[in-house]
Amino acid sequence: MAPILAENSKPNLPDGDNYVNNGFVNIKNPHLDLLSEDILYHFDLGTKTHDLPLMFGDVKFVCVGGSANRMRDFAVFIHKELGLEGDGNSITDICAGTDRYSMYKVGPVLSISHGMGVPSISIMLHELIKLLHHAKCRDVTIIRIGTSGGIGIEPGTVVITDTAVDAFFRPQFDQVILDKVVVRNTELHRELAENLLQCSTEIPDFPSIIGHTMCTYDFYEGQGRLDGALCSFSKEEKLEYLRKAYAAGVRNIEMESTVFAAMCHLCGLKAAVVCVTLLNRLEGDQISQSHNVLKEFQTRPQQLIAKFIKKQLGLCT
Rank of each mutant, 00 (worst) to 15 (best):
Q298G: 09
G249W: 05
E254L: 03
A261E: 07
D205A: 14
R190M: 04
E283W: 09
G222V: 12
D205Q: 12
V293G: 12
Y220R: 09
I210W: 12
L230G: 06
K235A: 11
A229Y: 05
F219T: 02
T258H: 12
A248N: 10
G224C: 01
K295P: 13
H189K: 01
Y220A: 14
H291R: 14
E187N: 14
A193H: 02
A193R: 03
D285F: 05
E202H: 06
H212D: 13
A193S: 12
A248F: 11
A262W: 11
A229Q: 05
R243W: 07
L278G: 04
I287G: 11
D285G: 15
G268L: 02
G224K: 01
A271W: 01
T277F: 02
N292Y: 09
T258A: 06
L266T: 15
H265A: 11
L192K: 01
L279K: 06
S234P: 00
E237C: 00
E194V: 09
E202M: 09
D218C: 06
A261F: 12
N252D: 02
I287T: 05
T258W: 11
C199W: 04
L230R: 11
L294F: 09
H265L: 07
L266Y: 10
K235H: 09
T216W: 05
Q289G: 06
V273T: 03
R243P: 12
G224A: 09
V274N: 00
T186H: 05
I209A: 05
R184N: 13
C267I: 07
V183P: 13
R225I: 00
S200T: 06
E240C: 14
L197V: 08
Y246W: 09
V183S: 13
S234M: 04
Y246V: 08
V250Y: 03
V273H: 01
S257M: 10
S288P: 11
A248V: 08
E240P: 01
K235E: 10
L239I: 04
G284N: 05
A247L: 15
L197R: 15
A193P: 10
H291A: 08
E187V: 07
G268E: 01
G228N: 00
E296V: 08
R251A: 12
T186L: 07
K238Y: 08
L192F: 03
K244D: 15
D285V: 12
L230T: 14
I203D: 02
I203W: 01
T213Y: 02
T216R: 08
E296T: 13
L192G: 01
V183M: 08
Q223W: 04
M214R: 15
K244M: 15
V182L: 15
A262Y: 14
Q289H: 10
F233K: 00
K295S: 15
G222F: 15
F233M: 03
L266Q: 09
C275V: 08
K295R: 15
Q286F: 14
L197D: 09
M255D: 01
Y220C: 14
I253W: 02
E236W: 00
L188K: 03
L278Q: 08
E256F: 06
Q289P: 10
G222I: 09
H265V: 10
E191F: 03
F297N: 13
G268V: 04
V259M: 15
K235S: 07
L192V: 03
D205T: 09
C275Q: 08
A261M: 14
L197Y: 09
T213E: 05
